[in-house]
């Protein structure tokens, strides 16, 4: 299922990019969680949680922290 791998890779890139780009001054994990909560589907959020659990080394620390904040 290379497609699934590809899809995961995209989510990693997206999440890291969000963490890298949110406005400065606020708490990054909260901003990332808010953004993902607002624009991602439930399935994408679930996938990200799964990635954070199994291979969190691909994710920036702020993203890992954000995942914990996701509903």
């Amino acid at each position: 299922m290379s497609g699934v791998v590809e899809q995961d890779a995209r989510l990693v890139v997206m999440a890291n990019q969000i963490a890298n780009n949110v406005p400065v001054g606020g708490e990054v994990p909260q901003q990332v969680a808010d953004h993902i909560g607002k624009f991602w589907t439930g399935a994408m959020r679930a996938d990200l949680k799964r990635i954070a659990e199994h291979s969190s080394d691909q994710l920036r620390q702020e993203v890992v922290a954000a995942v914990a904040l996701l509903a």
């Binding site: 299922m1 590809e6 995209r10 589907t41």
Partner: peptide, 9 residues
């Protein structure tokens, strides 16, 4: 995301 999900089946 639709296209990625499509590739993922």
């Amino acid at each position: 995301n639709m296209l990625d999900a499509a590739v993922a089946g």
